[in-house]
Design a protein around this nucleic acid. Structure first.
Lengths: 195, 195
DNA sequence: GTTTTTTCTGAACGCACGTTCAGATACTGT
DNA sequence: ACAGTATCTGAACGTGCGTTCAGAAAAAAC
């Protein structure tokens, strides 16, 4: 009934995040209790409050970290001048990044309604930044005459919706390699927006 | 403390369904209580159990009815022989039907994990029937040489994901008419799958 | 070896949950 | 007018919720 042998915040903290991520993705934020999360890590519920002020922050931190990772990873990608090459880079990057983090992606899309208004603003703001990158590419391509879409904003949302769809069925080790999936989707995206 | 004036199951039953639909869509199944649903209809929680055996059935019935409506509405659509015309009909029908029922659609996609295994099977089975219709169209078009997709199953999922995306942003009375939205998306779908 | 800091337990708080049911009132059919 | 049925209330059941906190043990600092 006190500090346990081998306990360290550097270890417990991340383990709590992982447990919350896994359980939120599997059962949904509202259906998961603090006691379940604690149990997954081998703690009593009260110990969680050494690491988070409340349950809501646990969710928000997962989303914010995920979107910051997304933006950072994207910023580290090469950026060709050619719109077609840029779009291909975006499509392939998006599929790779998202299929690699199915739980984070799932939560970031499904649990928005469980955020407080200000946390909601923060998360959708970060996502907006990412979507703006794609819209810039499309606009650049339209200006260059290589893409033809009547509305770049709608085309942006349509392309992202299509690419996000991969996460609903793709599993590593399945019939198709990730490289093959990338190519199939890139092909459809390219045709959909090309002049 | 008894039957109230003007109470009738023909009226109360549908009102309970509507209240559950609205609240589940807004806050999520797990976050909505039977007392909230009852309150929305002007009842005490116990009265709901004249209409549903439990909370889970309330959710399942909403999903099943929605998908049955979808299949029935689709079956009532004209079915041209030409694959291109069939695909256009499917795309436009899908957008019209789904934008007309945003709450039902939202629930049918987001609350699958709150279904018991057998209810889950029933719902995904109905959805599979609908998706098979699209895959049949694509396969027919590929055989006729008018479509070119390396994998009809993946193309089916990609097209549906893209079309479903409309529901994330479209609102009646917005900048674009539904007809215009249909045309924009149909254009992207057509280009994405055409040979 | 002693003190200080970190980490956790276990119990407790008030509250809300899904569900059941006896009893009361409104409606319906005769 | 009366009997039978449909509909709802209000209270209750046990359970689990998010969160707080005093105190105890382990680790770290000195």
């Amino acid at each position: 009934m006190a500090r346990t042998a081998g306990s360290h915040s550097d270890i417990t903290g991340p383990r709590i995040q992982e447990a919350a991520l896994k359980l939120f993705a599997r059962h949904g934020f509202a259906a998961v209790s603090m006691r379940q999360i604690a149990g997954e890590v081998g703690l009593q519920a009260g110990a969680l409050y050494n690491y988070t002020p409340d349950k809501q922050s646990l969710l928000f931190d997962l989303m914010r970290d995920h979107l910051n990772d997304l933006l950072a990873a994207r910023a580290a990608q090469p950026m060709p001048d050619d719109p077609m090459a840029r779009l291909e880079g975006f499509a392939r990057f998006h599929i790779r990044f998202h299929t690699d983090r199915p739980d984070e992606v799932f939560i970031a899309y499904m649990e928005l309604r469980n955020l407080t208004p200000e946390n909601f603003e923060a998360v959708t703001g970060l996502r907006g930044k990412y979507e703006d990158e794609l819209e810039d590419i499309l606009r650049q391509g339209v200006d260059a005459g290589v893409f033809a879409v009547p509305d770049t904003k709608i085309a942006t949302l349509a392309v992202i919706a299509m690419l996000n769809g991969v996460n609903t069925w793709y599993r590593p080790g399945g019939r198709l390699s990730l490289e093959a999936v990338e190519t199939i989707y890139w092909d459809m995206v390219r045709k959909a927006v090309t002049a």
